[in-house]
């Protein structure tokens, strides 16, 4: 199966590969997997004081489409608010990378990884009500 030029580009030059300190309070980590194909994806966000995602890193073991989906996801969420990042749909990723139907699940993995990272970051923050007191 031929990959699109965009998938090949992200696969050969993945953006933002790496790791952030997962124990830091301003870092959210999302770890998701697709057992059917044996893929595992870690996506991390670092949230700045203004509530914007100032850095994002990923590490993915899987096929080219899974690597490209997570690479693209980290590019897209940088500079976004948590709400904006969490609203990214897998269909947008799949469309941008021209993923064939059999590889749509790779974009689902990326969407779920973003959501998991945002949820992990939020769980680390003091509750809004407590913060207001």
């Amino acid at each position: 199966m031929a990959y699109s030029d965009k998938v090949v580009d992200h696969y050969e030059n993945p953006r933002n590969v790496g790791t952030l300190d997962k124990s830091a309070n301003d870092v959210g980590t999302g770890l998701v997997g697709a057992p059917a194909c044996g893929d595992v994806m870690k996506l991390q966000i670092k949230v700045g004081a203004g509530g914007l995602i100032e850095d994002a890193k990923f590490k993915t073991f899987g096929c080219g489409s899974a690597i490209a989906s997570s690479s693209l996801a980290t590019e897209w969420i940088k500079g976004k608010t948590l709400e904006e990042a969490a609203s990214i749909r897998n269909t947008e990723i799949a469309q941008h990378l021209s993923l064939p139907p059999v590889k749509i699940h790779c974009s689902v993995l990326a969407e779920d990884a973003i959501k998991a990272a945002v949820a992990d970051y939020r769980a680390k923050q003091p509750k809004a009500s407590e913060a207001a007191e």
Binding site: L31, V32, G33, A34, P35, A36, C37, V40, K42, K59, F61, I104, H105, V108, L109, D112, A116
Partner: peptide
Amino acid sequence: IAGDGKTIADPELLAEVMERRE
């Protein structure tokens, strides 16, 4: 078990997988 298009978020298992793949 989770089939095509289904994802899992089992932190312990996935952390182990990540570690072995690394």
